[in-house]
Simulated scan of single mutants.
Amino acid sequence: MKIPFLVLLITLVASNVAAQQINRFQNTQSIDDFFQYKPNRKRPLILAHRGGPGPADTENSIVTFAKTAKMLPDAIIEMDVRMTRDSSFVLLHDATLDRESNAKGPVAEWTLSDLREIKLKTLVGELTDQQIPTFSEILAWNKNRFMLALDIKPGTDPLSVMKEVQKQQAEYSVFVICYSFLEAQRVRNRYPTLWLAVGINGIEDIARLEKDSLLIGRRLIALTPQKVQPASFYERLHKLGIPCSVGTYGAGQLDEKPVTEATQEYRALFRQGGDIITTDRPVEVSKLF
């Protein structure tokens, strides 16, 4: 039976698109184009907090990352990187295993082989057959298709994590969340073209940044307060060419409200100057723009 030409054409296009997705972020220009501050941006970038799990999903897992990426190919997938007792890197938000798995105790006291025996729980506490993924498994799964936000937890060396990133040639599909200007500068010294995210909690931090050597070369994302700031706050960062990220997750925040009630607030946040919205419900928030 002959395959209709239109069906064949659609199949070929679809396969080409799928092929193009691999190594979408493969050089400095590709990541710079993605994050560069754009004053005429029509919609915010959406950052999926912990990968964007729903109540029945596991957080920080390949299953959830793949689910979010399928629905939102341009979403930024955030993950939490921790080090095991034998210096391997795994994904887990909490310092202990208690909430997210069927085991207990600090991640740092477990070896990777022992962690392979435990299973992840969903957000509502249901046990699954999913293992805690290693960071290297995530990079191998991603193949530079989606942008990854690395929240490298205290006690885990970001430079060691970046060695694994380099090993898998993934340095253009990640950015690193830093907990201080000092840490950010340490990473910048070693990786001068890497995008970094740093906390900017007030005007004083902007003033400090304006005089800091970290500003040289830019490639910075400002992690701004969850409470909406005056427009002048975001404008001052935008004048430096720095996009602003705002979190809407957590107790008392927008993500806790019904979407219908919070719609205008999400949109106002973007109009005010929030270039990146970090949310627990990325799919629903994306649909508002």
Rank of each mutant, 00 (worst) to 15 (best):
K2Q: 12
D86P: 11
A207T: 15
R190D: 08
F181I: 08
M71H: 08
S88A: 12
D205A: 11
E117N: 15
E78R: 01
G202V: 05
L72E: 04
L194W: 03
L91C: 06
H238Y: 06
H49I: 07
A66N: 13
T279P: 00
V107L: 14
M147Y: 01
I200Q: 10
G274V: 02
R219Q: 11
G250V: 10
F233H: 04
R218V: 03
V107M: 12
V176W: 04
S88W: 09
I77N: 02
K211D: 02
A103D: 10
R99A: 02
D94I: 01
L92K: 07
M1Y: 07
R145T: 12
K70W: 10
V246G: 07
E117C: 03
K153D: 13
D255G: 07
L139K: 06
A18Q: 12
I31N: 03
F289G: 10
S87L: 10
L112A: 08
N142T: 00
T134S: 13
G51T: 05
D275Y: 02
N60V: 02
R218H: 14
E100G: 11
L127D: 07
M71W: 03
N40K: 12
A56G: 01
L45T: 00
A170M: 12
L269P: 03
E117V: 04
V13W: 15
L214T: 02
A268D: 15
K70P: 04
I206G: 01
E59Y: 02
M83V: 09
P154A: 10
V285I: 14
K239D: 13
Q169L: 06
I46A: 03
S15E: 12
L150S: 08
S136T: 15
V174T: 06
R116F: 09
S15P: 05
M147F: 00
G252L: 09
A231E: 13
K167T: 09
